[in-house]
Simulated assay, not measured.
Amino acid sequence: MLDLILPLECGGCGAPCTRWCDACATALQVHSDEPHLVTPRVDPGVPVFALGRYAGPRRHAIVAVKEHGRRDLVAPLSRALALGIHRLAVWGIVATPLTVVPAPTRRAAARRRGGDPVARVADTATRTNPDITSVHALRTVGRARDSVGLTTTARERNIAGRVRLTGSAPAGEVLLVDDIVTTGATAREAVRVLRAAGSEVSAVLTLAHA
């Protein structure tokens, strides 16, 4: 009866009667050679790693969390992010104690989505590790547009000068995390602001690259 009123469907492929099917869980697994080093068009000045391409179940899950309020999908995305952070630590890219800083989200978008989905995934991914802390250190100000459909130059112009600290800069080693890296414009501005304030940013890690 509940399925008839509020039908369940997989957030990755739309399969009925499940929130997250086994096939999509497999597609989101972090393999031994992941995350991969990627090269966005705009260089943030630190290595950028992504857990997979922005396609298939990964893309559908990210969109469902961001645009359709599917908070139940925070769990599989945060597990993938936690494994990605662990791999970077094992490879020596980052070291603990570590501060994870979610990339900033426009306030209007956060209000529309009932909160910041990137921050929610980062918080969940780091919750059980006492050596890793998620700190919402960045925010956007002014009238930054939604970056979907903008060219690389337009994205850079759109975000330039609009990322600010919410308070004191995080001390020690910092890992910037985001859901998707496309041109790298947001990552570069976020890294610039953190470094200018004295934070030691070692890398960027995203759930997907486009």
Rank of each mutant, 00 (worst) to 15 (best):
T105H: 05
V118A: 07
D146V: 13
W91A: 08
V174Y: 14
R195L: 06
A137L: 01
G161M: 11
V191A: 01
R145K: 15
E156L: 12
K66V: 14
A109Y: 00
G114A: 01
A122S: 06
L88N: 03
R192T: 00
G69A: 04
I93W: 09
A103W: 03
G69T: 04
H68N: 12
V121Y: 02
P130S: 08
T151S: 15
A137M: 02
T126F: 14
A109G: 00
D146M: 08
A190Q: 07
T153W: 07
G167M: 12
L138R: 13
A154P: 12
T186L: 00
A110P: 07
P97E: 03
E67L: 02
P170T: 11
R71M: 07
V121W: 13
E67P: 05
V181H: 09
G198M: 00
A119E: 00
G69S: 09
L88T: 00
E189P: 00
E156F: 01
A144D: 07
A125D: 04
R157G: 05
T153I: 08
L77G: 09
A196Y: 02
R113E: 00
L77Q: 07
R70E: 14
L83C: 11
P76V: 11
T152D: 06
V100K: 04
A196F: 03
V100P: 05
D72R: 11
G172R: 05
V94P: 00
L150S: 07
P97Y: 04
V100Y: 08
P102S: 01
R107T: 07
A80H: 02
V201A: 02
E173Y: 06
D123M: 09
D179K: 11
I132L: 07
V141P: 07
T183M: 03
A95V: 05
G84H: 12
K66Y: 14
V201S: 09
P117K: 08
L83D: 11
R162S: 09
V181N: 03
T126V: 15
A103C: 04
G92W: 01
R139P: 09
D72L: 11
I85T: 01
R155M: 05
I93E: 08
S168P: 10
T151C: 03
T152M: 15
T126D: 13
P104N: 02
G172T: 02
A187M: 13
T182I: 11
V181F: 07
D178G: 04
R155S: 11
T183A: 02
S78D: 09
E67Q: 04
A103T: 13
S168M: 15
A154R: 15
A108K: 14
V193Q: 00
L73Q: 06
R143V: 06
R106E: 01
R192Q: 13
T133R: 15
S78A: 15
A154G: 10
P170M: 08
V118S: 05
S199K: 02
V141Y: 08
D179I: 05
V135K: 11
S147C: 10
G167W: 13
L138Y: 15
